[in-house]
Write a protein that binds this DNA or RNA. Structure first.
Ligand SMILES: [Mn+2]
Ligand SMILES: [Mn+2]
Ligand SMILES: [Mn+2]
Ligand SMILES: [Mn+2]
Lengths: 147, 147
DNA sequence: CACGCAATGTAGCATATGCTACGGATGAAG
DNA sequence: CTTCATCCGTAGCATATGCTACATTGCGTG
């Protein structure tokens, strides 16, 4: 056997695989973050949040929303009952505030780079979920010094 | 009927839903981009790219890789045959180069913000797929002026 | 050139998130 | 209090991406 490559996962390849594993973990949290944000905003704006409000917000069918709301309820982030409005639990409220804060910083950061408003809103919606505490801190520094 | 809210999707809610639709579209492209990048790098580094190379790279099972490689072959990005190495098509090569370039800029950009190497590598792996041409251009400008 | 291990493929399962079609619940208006 | 439009839930389907267990191929070694 020539054995140019190790059979087991090398230290180097483990390092390379970690970013992808982290990205998958971020995507697993993404729906929860976007949903509690949306519930928070909708309640603020129109007093209550309904399944159809979220369906319109995300541009998906009410069926998709209904199922996801059920799961997030199981996870203790949302409260709801059949044909009733959706509210945030204390836990959901904390996640919403944390997520909104991070989202806002990412958005302002992109704007500070000179990205136009619409593009900044689009890109920040995806980027926010992949911004670690360290990167968020760096963005805050940039906003304070350069702005 | 009090009709506080319009039944149909308002212009405002359409604007709000667009970022989420864009994020979903980005995620639909993400696997393809990461895979062609990985194939490109692996071929460069060790002469050929095997299913297990990608499995280690992404830290997933060889089964997951095998299925995805089959799909990307159908999409015309990869070439392969049973028990044979994986290669890029011309189309796959173009996507790989484009993706690698963008990934590299995002990484360097995060480093230029003062983010540590490991964190920058992790965050850029997820962020890259959500960076539009406009934001990428803004990052390039930042790298030229501030660095 | 036969053997056996490593690599790859296949079967079958799970979860997450999309959809359409249809049926039941709610509540505003008469 | 009945009616009926709107909202919501459920059934059933699809795709993408994870997994384990098992079958098969291929190749280096003896
Ligand atoms: Mn958000
Ligand atoms: Mn988001
Ligand atoms: Mn990536
Ligand atoms: Mn993402």
């Amino acid at each position: 056997m020539t054995k140019k490559t190790p059979k087991t996962t090398s230290k180097k390849s483990k390092e390379r695989s970690e970013p992808h594993a982290r990205t998958r973990a971020a995507h697993a949290q993404e729906t929860a973050e976007d949903y509690v944000e949306a519930v928070f905003d909708t309640v603020q704006e129109k007093g209550e949040c309904r399944v159809l409000d979220l369906a319109r917000h995300f541009a998906v069918s009410h069926v998709t929303v209904s199922r996801i709301v059920g799961r997030l309820k199981q996870e203790g982030l949302l409260e709801t009952a059949p044909y009733r409005p959706i509210t945030l639990t204390a836990k959901g409220n904390r996640l919403a505030k944390r997520s909104k804060k991070r989202h806002q910083i990412v958005l302002e950061f992109l704007l500070s780079l000179g990205v136009d408003q619409k593009t900044a809103e689009i890109d920040s919606e995806g980027i926010e979920h992949h911004v670690s505490e360290a990167t968020l801190a760096a963005m805050k520094r940039h906003l304070k010094t350069r702005h």
